[in-house]
């Protein structure tokens, strides 16, 4: 199925969860923040939230900055 990941089209396996998506992105989940369809999705929901075709997912992380 196809989702929007950080504004770009991305092909992922049907039924993938948010947690699986993050693993695939090789990002440290402890510093990751996720928005699903413009709403914040807290880490507690990552494992149980299966993505749907057409979902918009944004993944952020804290980085250095002034």
């Amino acid at each position: 199925m196809r989702i929007k990941l950080n504004g770009r089209d991305a092909e992922i396996k049907d039924g993938s969860t948010v947690a699986a998506l993050l693993r695939g992105m090789k990002t440290d989940p402890k510093s990751s923040l996720v928005e699903l369809n413009m709403k914040v999705l807290r880490p507690a929901g990552w494992k149980e939230t299966a993505l749907q075709d057409g979902d918009a997912v944004e993944v952020f992380s804290f980085v250095t900055g002034g």
Partner: peptide, 19 residues
């Protein structure tokens, strides 16, 4: 101390600045 927030590029990997 200030930090920023950015989108994570797929596959780029990211450490945890906060640590």
């Amino acid at each position: 101390v200030t930090v920023a927030l950015r989108r994570v590029d797929a596959g780029a990997g990211s450490g945890n600045i906060l640590s």
